[in-house]
């Protein structure tokens, strides 16, 4: 395996549960040292992907490789190099949080000939503000997640598989989590981070994949994704900007305000034509200009907007596009 061979590589994965196609030709590739954001609503196939990566489920077709090996066949060897945080952390009710963490660290260091390092564990317990002496039965969802996170982050592994790891954490812990993931990245670890929290994915991810109905519909760096979508521009010009309305790569053109207070034109431009629009605007005499890159939410809505409108929910993106 060469240095730059992908840590995770999935090609045309298909997984069916009876009539349901949970993974539908899914392609995913994660490079060493990369934090990869994995976006999509519940039921899109994120957890199924994780479970295939862990070798708990076997794909119906397609190939999947972790560190160049088959996760179904070489599960034990591969699991020495990865740690997993399930979306719904279930712990053994009569263990304490500290015991549960140790169980995982011990299982992982077993057979490697060296004991795990308790300082890292204790430091993380401190930072995540967990009481390790309480029985896990009495923990809230957030606390159970902390246990799984600490167990995963204290381990010496190359890959972290995190399935909505902070769904139950408060904003303070969310900040700690982001800090710790930055450290993991600095240490050269790869992370597959499935999440609903867009700001988290935006802050942490090198690359992002958006999954829909078991298929990756968009994948790339955030700026690549932004490039592919529309930028919103609000501009006040000397002469009216109406002529832009008829240009093919300008959408949802409308004006706001009155001639006395100064008219503002608001419109969206396809990502790869922003430069052209700027040149045209320059000729009209710009008083002020605001350009918003698409938010991650808009990116996601672009792929899921029709789902929502089918359910009678209107989204801001939808309104602008139509």
């Amino acid at each position: 395996m060469s240095e730059n061979a992908p840590v995770i590589s999935a090609v045309d994965l298909v997984k069916e549960f009876g009539p349901v196609r949970a993974l539908d030709d899914l392609n995913l590739s994660i490079a060493p040292g990369e934090v990869h954001g994995f976006l999509g609503p519940n039921g899109a196939g994120k957890s199924t992907t994780m479970r295939v990566l862990l070798g708990l489920l076997r794909p119906d077709s397609g190939t999947i490789r972790l560190f160049g090996r088959d996760p179904w066949r070489d599960a034990v060897e591969l699991h020495r190099r990865l740690a997993y945080v399930p979306g719904d952390v279930e712990l053994w009710p009569n263990l304490t949080g500290g015991e549960a963490i140790d169980v995982f660290l011990r299982l992982r260091s077993r057979g490697t000939g060296r004991a795990f390092d308790p300082t890292r564990r204790d430091e993380l317990i401190e930072r995540f503000d967990l009481d390790p002496r309480k029985k896990t039965r009495t923990y809230s969802k957030g606390n159970r997640q902390k246990v799984a996170l600490i167990a995963a982050l204290a381990a010496e592994v190359d890959l972290l598989l995190l399935d909505e790891p902070t769904a139950g954490l408060d904003p303070l812990m969310e900040a700690v989590f982001q800090e710790v993931i930055h450290e993991a990245k600095a240490a050269g670890r790869s992370v597959l981070l499935s999440s609903h929290i867009l700001s988290q994915v935006e802050a942490l991810s090198d690359r992002i994949s958006i999954i829909r109905s078991g298929n990756i519909v968009e994948s790339g760096t955030l700026s690549e994704l932004r490039h592919m979508t529309r930028t919103t521009i609000e501009v006040q010009t000397e002469s009216p900007a109406d002529e832009l309305a008829s240009v093919s790569f300008v959408h949802a053109f409308h004006t706001e305000g009155s001639p006395s207070t100064g008219e503002r034109s608001v419109f969206e431009v396809d990502g790869d034509h922003v430069g052209e629009v700027m040149q045209r605007l320059a000729g009209l005499g710009v008083h002020s200009i605001v350009a918003h890159p698409p938010t991650l939410e808009q990116l996601l809505m672009r792929h899921y907007g029709d789902d929502l409108s089918a359910r009678g929910v209107s989204t801001s993106t939808q309104k602008k596009v139509s």
Partner: peptide, 13 residues
């Protein structure tokens, strides 16, 4: 409150 650290025996299948 229970133990904050597991006994060594726990760390095996």
């Amino acid at each position: 409150l229970g133990r904050s650290r597991a006994r060594p025996s726990l760390g095996t299948p």
